[in-house]
Write a protein that binds this DNA or RNA. Structure first.
Lengths: 217, 217
DNA sequence: ATAAAAATTTAGACTACCCTAAATTTTTAG
DNA sequence: CTAAAAATTTAGGGTAGTCTAAATTTTTAT
């Protein structure tokens, strides 16, 4: 079995590898795990010994197939629990991340299977992120960032890249919810902010910073 | 905050203090926590420093008010999660203990509150154990052991003292479920086994060992 | 009452994970 | 191309929780 801490490192390596494509650096991991680079190096040696990562000193790190399988299993659990917390317990989508961080480490295959069934085999978590399959594959989505949409296009809000409470509360406040159909009316040439119209007919101003964190279809 | 391990010790001290009335011994704790007496001594010093237990060397241990409050909070979480696992996810009552051992340590008051609401404020867990109140009181039940019931009496099965898979599967097999009304027909003078009649009319033989672990009303 | 047995505590050590400071390697800038 | 900067690793050490073996205290049995 792998420790709570090992699981968190694997998950973090997966995220960083997919964010900035390619190898993951020690410093990036230290920042994400809120530890120091020296501690990361210790753990990388340990994960490499267990064949969960490919690791050459000073060269960055990459998950092995087994490491990726484990990472996706943990992400699957995290996202299923987020669905539970929002859909069944009525938490807001901005309140569930921390709790799911703990729930994802509960060790029981049977529990995850039954939870999945209970929730009706959801495909996406409350932030629109796809839920990895039981077999350990991450579904492809093909979403674009709202910041890359041309003026005049109509698109559907599918997911958020940023999960902070402040960002999510801001979206709630602007009546921007997932599934929401928006039409891009204007793109400001200077600051790249966009003016969109939502289904209710209301116009909503979205800064470039926000638009970069919204995924659409 | 208190560690996972500290929480387990507090819970275990509570159980043992209520099982064999009075002070809890180092060895009993070592057996229950599957560690060695020396490790228990270390932890007792730590819990005493934190004012969670009353502890005098060589004299056994007792929870302080604060320690008992924490222990009951953990037991409350454990039992609520067991209700969830059985009622919502469809686990058998013999399968939920280990998983609830992990879930009980998830740190979120809000989670427990919402779970309680979601489950409809249950009073008892799937084994018939009362669920401590949010304020940290253990409800009194006044149950007797089936082994103490007189011949001729009709009683209702309310709870089990033993939680092992084998014991619970045996009860399932004998069609002895909680809430089941049973009439004690005969008490064997030699081995104290009892012959009871259940609602379906069927007679069920119950050994003294089993009867001692069944609580009735 | 006291010696043997049982229970408990202390001493010293181990692992997992984390840290700071110093050393080393890689990257970058001039 | 090389010196400075940045990134990374190594060295040495800390805490939490565990262990074994030895020392100490309490209990039990004669």
């Amino acid at each position: 079995m792998h420790s709570f801490t090992e699981e968190n490192y694997l998950k973090t390596i997966y995220y960083l590898a997919n964010r900035r494509q390619g190898e993951v650096s020690t410093n990036a991991l230290a920042e994400m795990t809120a530890t120091k680079a020296a501690s990361v190096t210790d753990m990388l040696r340990k994960l490499a010994d267990k064949q969960l990562i490919h690791y050459k000193k000073y060269q960055g790190v990459r998950l092995t197939d087994e490491g990726e399988r484990l990472a996706l299993q943990i992400i699957r659990r995290h996202r299923l629990w987020e669905v539970f917390l929002v859909q069944k317990l009525g938490f807001g989508w901005d309140e569930v991340h921390e709790i799911a961080e703990e729930l994802e480490h509960i060790r029981s295959e049977e529990l995850v299977t039954r939870l999945d069934t209970y929730l009706g085999y959801p495909q996406f978590d409350p932030h629109g992120d796809p839920i990895p399959t039981p077999a350990g594959k991450m579904p492809e989505t093909g979403y674009r960032k709202l910041s890359e949409v041309e003026a005049g296009e109509g698109v559907c809000l599918m997911a958020v890249l940023e999960h902070s409470t402040e960002f999510l509360k801001h979206l709630d406040h602007s009546q921007l919810t997932l599934g929401c159909v928006v039409t891009v009316n204007e793109i400001n040439a200077f600051d790249k902010s966009v003016l969109v119209q939502i289904a209710s007919g209301r116009s909503v101003f979205i800064s470039h910073e926000v638009a970069r964190n919204l995924l659409v279809n």
